[in-house]
Amino acid sequence: MEMGVKDRNAANHLEELRAILLTPDRESQSTVMERLAELEKALVDDKAFEERLTPHLEAQVVHLQKNFPKLFGQFLGPAIKHQIEEEREVIIDALYPIIGKLIAKYLKEEIKRISERIDESMKDPFSLSTLKFRAKALFAGVSYQELLFREVTNRHKLEEIFIIQKDSGLSMAHYSLNEVTRSQMVAGMLTGIKSFLEDAFQKGTQELDTLEYEDYRIKIYPFPRFYVATVIEGSPDQEYERFLKKYVDEFCAKEPIPAREEVTQVIQDRLSLALKEHFHGFNQARDQ
């Protein structure tokens, strides 16, 4: 067998897998359909095939679209696993952006919700802050919702900080400069993705330490029973990372983190408050 062909096939499979798997779940099927449509187009472009194949193909495409999950659902898991084992290096590159997108989607939805909420709360036309904002928006030439959005998202470099119980993926504490409210969802997804990657690419006992997406970067600081995750906007240099790590270590040294226990509101409130106190001046301290 020719290696070139095999490689190309592998690359194609990988492309396929990459498109199908681990895309934000609900988008996946449309990707499959798009691919089938593309495939169909490629084939019908060739005139010789057109007449003979089109009817069969259409029927097949419809059949596949309808039954994809039933037909292939159970094979996907083992297939990815196998593919990953075979193609570790390639797939790492392929997976990272997708995973990033998944988290980005969650965070973005959250940030959008917040800006909508703030917008809602500013509908009172007589409130001074509303007037100020409108004036500012007018001068800036953007909708004041957009302006608000920018204020919410761009003010700081360190955007989020989580303390997450390792096994359950429950958020034990969360401090956010964006007031992301569904933090448990983000913590759970992050933990699921982290475990998946560590399992798939296990290199000894190494733990995942960075995930990147768009202009954000999630740094993970592992401790035996919990981990700290920070979301940073922009690309921090090494000095910034050292500075942040020092902040995280100082926090974990002075604050008892009961990661063996049940995650209660009392613990969450105490730790979140402590996080806030420890980190609220971080960006300013950093800028000096």
Binding site: I20, L21, L22, T23, D25, R26, S28, Q29, F68, P69, G73, L76, G169, R182, Q184, M185, G188, M189, G192, I193, F196, Q265
Partner: peptide, 20 residues
């Protein structure tokens, strides 16, 4: 019907008397 791929996490609060 969109089959779930991998994992999806959701959250919802339930009130049981005084307990959330």
């Amino acid at each position: 019907y969109l089959t779930t791929i991998g994992l999806r996490v959701d959250q919802k609060t339930v009130q049981l008397g005084d307990l959330t």
